[in-house]
Design a protein around this nucleic acid. Sequence first.
DNA 1: ACCGTATTCAGCGCG
DNA 2: TGAATACGGT
Length: 772
Amino acid sequence: MHKNFGVANFLKQLNEVQQQAVMQTEGPVMVIAGAGSGKTRVLTYRVAYLLTKGADPFNILALTFTNKAAREMKERIIKLIGSTEGKNVWMGTFHSIFARILRVEGHHLGYPQNYSIYDTDDSKRLIKSIIKEQNLNDKVYAPNYVLGRISGAKSGLVSVAEYNQNPEVKASDESAGKPKIGELYKIYQGRLKKAQAMDFDDLLFNMYILLRDFPDLLYKYQQRFKYILVDEYQDTNHAQYMIVKKLAANNENLCIVGDDAQSIYGFRGANIQNILNFRSDYPDHKVFKLEQNYRSTKTIVGAANGIIVNNKNQIFKEIWTENEEGNKINILKASSDNEEGGMVANSIFEHKMNFQLKNNEFAVLYRTNAQSRSIEEALRRRNIPYRIFGGLSFYNRKEVKDLLAYFRLVINHKDEEALMRVINYPARGIGKTTLEKLIVEADRVNKSVWEAAEKLEVSNPGLNAGTRRKIIEFTTMIKSFKAQVGKKNAYDLAKHIATSSGLLRQLYEDKSPEGVSRFENIEELLNAIKEFTEQERTLQTEEETEEKNSIRTLDEFLQEVALLTDQDKNDKNSTDYVSLMTIHMAKGLEFPYVFLVGLEENLFPSIQSLSARADLEEERRLFYVALTRAMKKITLSYAETRYKWGNLTICEPSRFLEEVDEKYIEAPRKASIHKSDFFESGPKIRTTSSGDKEKVKRKNFRRVSSVSPEPSHGGMDHSELQTGMEVEHRKFGRGKIVHLEGDGANKKATVFFKGVGNKQLLLKFAKLKVLK
DNA sequence: ACCGTATTCAGCGCG
DNA sequence: TGAATACGGT
């Protein structure tokens, strides 16, 4: 009704380029959005603009990477144009939108409407059990590695058949000493199908197959999604890229937004080429570059620009700002990780006192989660409240997953991972042996484990009457829950399941602090379900609208929760704390004062990024992302020694420190960030008086000197090692050196171990014994 | 079936 | 170092 209300008004809130990007509604559009340039603003205004121009909300598809991004965008659109229209826009993550479509269309591929979604945890368990069943060595076939290969294949749209037929893939698996991956992939997919389950990669893979193999479906969704928007396009993988391409192929009203400089998810399959190639993919495109930064000071913008130019692979742009010059960058040098924490905490304290700041104006960012400990301790000592983001999120807690597994099993009896999780939890005397018999029986009749359990009366897997009764009690209970799915609302049924399964009682009886917290988590989950039942439905397909009644049921809840991971269920924004998180987690956020810690070689840039140029460029983009989180001031810090894996190790300052232009740095850079100096600080560690430290330090030096017997001085050269030599490693056994690189403390050897494959070893740490 | 102890292994992590 | 899992004894 107020379709044109305030259009002119809200366009006035945009700068010129932003306006152009918003108003170019037809044809392919690429928006290159520098850090802090108002990217979300452009996306939301564009959707709002489309709606005021008369587009039907059901015809707009907006894809994001996180639930958070989708939610925020939706809220802002509703603010701009009101909730009736805003609510109906198809806005969500790739996974949630496709999961929804697959509920409706999955039957074309043989999936029922109530298919389960396996999370990474379920996938890993399944892979593990397959590896075990196949009698493969789980050192050679490390579950994580296998899963990585499979996931990589699926996100690259390589099917089981294609994987097994491709000679290059085969050769690469064989040279890695893992020729059976293709077979594991096949078994894995078979088991998922049998459990009527999809993993996260399947949601994308199967969506693509639907569009590729069913022209009428392709046509249907092309008609439905007349306007497509994709956020964070630099983070799309091949599957996502191809799906978007298919959907947009008809009218090419596709708007992608992203920043190649902030592509930091290459390690999980994101393909930066997708954004770099957009121009050639869509020759009729228009490009808009958002280059004005509204977030940071000139110093921060200048320093960030200065470091990112060191990357070769990028789209040219010039980020600038009208903001003030601001504070120079501070660099802190600490002698140890603990001291680094102390210096950061002190600096936060001083800033707070001097400028009357609140805790939530500060963030401490690090490369790896393990670094949070020393920072945490230091903040705690100074009574500065903090909150760690990341780590175990709510939905990954064991007790929460257990209850959710009950729900999953109720909705889809064939969900094997769910069944394994709960069949004997709480303990009901169905142990490992019994389960194994059931699995063998299921395998024999080629049915799911559930079906084998259900048909105990007729089959005879050699179980005694007592065990049999227990299993039948269990299946009867689950079936009785199932009967209530459509009758009770989600909360009532969830509560009923939690109680009559015995789960709630089991947790209640555990009075240890952990037990109490577990019980509270279940209460919280139940509260979330209660909230859910009281919410209105949003966004539904026509197919869904017809048959739904007024109550919100457990299966509906499950569909939403399966794709939820954020720890931001209820943002407790009210409290005032310093934020601690990894740089990855900080992407998209901003803080007035940012401390970036652990700027050391082999940590940031990380040790595994040093061998490939592309990886190093990704690390540099990560550094860029970290710098551009700061609005007013950024402080960088590094330590000369750090505990890694329980050992004291000596660290060199990061190369990234040298890439920051001197003119932005507060005090003139000390010579101390150079190698020569830092080795002089070596003896300092040896003369500590504390007996405790003495032990650690001796352990450390023993490690170093085990390669060469002389008293170490840090600068060992391992010159006795040559390519082609046979060596022995404590863990991997005998191997042959195939490559040597770097020198001094960074000298690395690539060694081929039989049955293990090639391993890169830092000679500083690896105990290599020369055999000949 | 369950519990305490030994052993192992460390990246960033959206859905 | 410390969390997660495997193992082995009861």
